[in-house]
Amino acid sequence: MIVGVRSLAVRWTAIVPVVAVVLLALTWGSHLPAAVVPLVTLVLAGSVLAAVHHAEVVAHRVGEPFGSLVLAIAVTVIEVALIVTLMADGGAKTASLARDTVFAAVMIACNGVVGLSLLVASLRHGIAVFNPEGTGAALATVATLATLSLVLPTFTTSKPGPEFSGPQLTFAALSSLVLYGLFVTTQTVRHRDYFLPITRQGEVITVDDHAHAPSTRTAARSLGLLGLALIGVVGLAKGVSPTIEAGVAAAGMPPAVVGVIIALLVLLPETIAALRSARRDRVQTSLNLALGSAMASIGLTIPAVALASVFLSGPLVLGLGPVHMVLLALTVVVSSLTVVPGRATPLQGGVHLVIFAAYLELAVTP
């Protein structure tokens, strides 16, 4: 019976990503009829679950922190492609799309995913434990990237409005790539042990003993299906966005809410994977996923849109407004206080979730 259930799980996680890509190809560029939206939403949800499954297979084969890095980069690369595509199609009305998407990813990851992970782990196991050296390095990189790319454009004077001049944008793009490259090298080569889960006695967990590692062939198959699933998630999320836009407009909410909803859909695979790790008392893996996603979102998106801006018409608005800068500063301060002890209680998780709730509230009622 158990073997049959596992076989069924393997089959549907292989079928759904293919169905998602086929459905995406059939519906790309067309307005979805109301009768098709429920089907697309169902396949989208299945793709999210399939992506989580295949990401965990790959992560178990390659080990941490490579596993969480694979999922973070895969999601972000596809998200960047979606942003550039929308900017090419949207013209001037998408001038702030990159900024809004990146900031939404940072707030979702650093407050939503981190808060839920700490809350789940501490409620289930009494206290959430993680490595402050690795988590602190990730947080410092995220804070620096966010400030250089999203805060400074508001205060520069070379161009009117919250925009970078050409040389400034080039510097921000190169800085993002350098910092992200340095972090990945630190995470995977020089100080890999800083990013591995630890026990309550502070010992590094180098081997996950809950199951045998899958074969190389199985991991390679899951890596390919992970890519298909993520393409389906991002593409189908774009497909249902007109329906979301209509619902948001009918509810009288600002258009920025659409970006938040789509960002939530796109980051669902990482969120579910992070919560599963938190339940297994692997909080470091959860934090690797959350902060890695925020970092990759900035470190890969800004260089991509900087390059795309050479070929695209219209302005590129990157600078945040006062309210969002306050929320970003609060996030950095609170995250620093959370990281320093290397341990967290439900209180810290609750504080991050309240900040995330404030971000959502101000997105709905600015």
Score class of each variant (00 low, 15 high):
residue 117 S to Y: 00
residue 52 V to C: 03
residue 325 M to V: 14
residue 13 T to G: 04
residue 155 F to S: 07
residue 340 V to N: 05
residue 49 L to M: 13
residue 75 V to A: 08
residue 203 E to L: 14
residue 289 L to A: 02
residue 85 T to V: 12
residue 11 R to E: 03
residue 94 T to A: 13
residue 326 V to G: 11
residue 352 H to L: 11
residue 173 A to M: 13
residue 139 L to T: 06
residue 33 P to G: 01
residue 345 T to W: 02
residue 38 P to F: 04
residue 130 F to S: 10
residue 300 L to N: 03
residue 344 A to Y: 05
residue 313 S to R: 14
residue 94 T to Q: 15
residue 232 G to W: 01
residue 270 E to N: 04
residue 315 P to F: 08
residue 14 A to I: 12
residue 259 G to M: 12
residue 280 R to P: 04
residue 141 T to A: 06
residue 282 R to F: 09
residue 185 T to L: 11
residue 135 T to P: 07
residue 184 V to Y: 09
residue 345 T to C: 01
residue 152 L to C: 04
residue 273 A to W: 06
residue 267 L to G: 04
residue 205 I to R: 13
residue 322 P to K: 06
residue 203 E to K: 15
residue 47 S to A: 14
residue 121 A to K: 02
residue 227 G to R: 11
residue 300 L to G: 04
residue 152 L to I: 15
residue 140 A to N: 08
residue 179 L to A: 02
residue 299 G to V: 04
residue 179 L to I: 01
residue 204 V to D: 04
residue 4 G to T: 11
residue 99 R to D: 03
residue 361 E to M: 14
residue 269 P to F: 02
residue 252 G to F: 09
residue 177 L to G: 11
residue 89 D to V: 06
residue 329 A to N: 06
residue 101 T to E: 05
residue 225 L to Y: 10
residue 302 I to M: 06
residue 191 H to S: 09
residue 60 H to P: 07
residue 134 G to P: 10
residue 128 A to N: 01
residue 205 I to K: 10
residue 202 G to V: 13
residue 185 T to P: 01
residue 354 V to Q: 01
residue 190 R to P: 02
residue 250 A to H: 11
residue 329 A to I: 10
residue 101 T to P: 08
residue 178 V to Y: 01
residue 156 T to Y: 14
residue 37 V to G: 00
residue 137 A to T: 12
residue 337 L to I: 13
residue 326 V to Y: 04
residue 279 R to F: 05
residue 236 L to K: 06
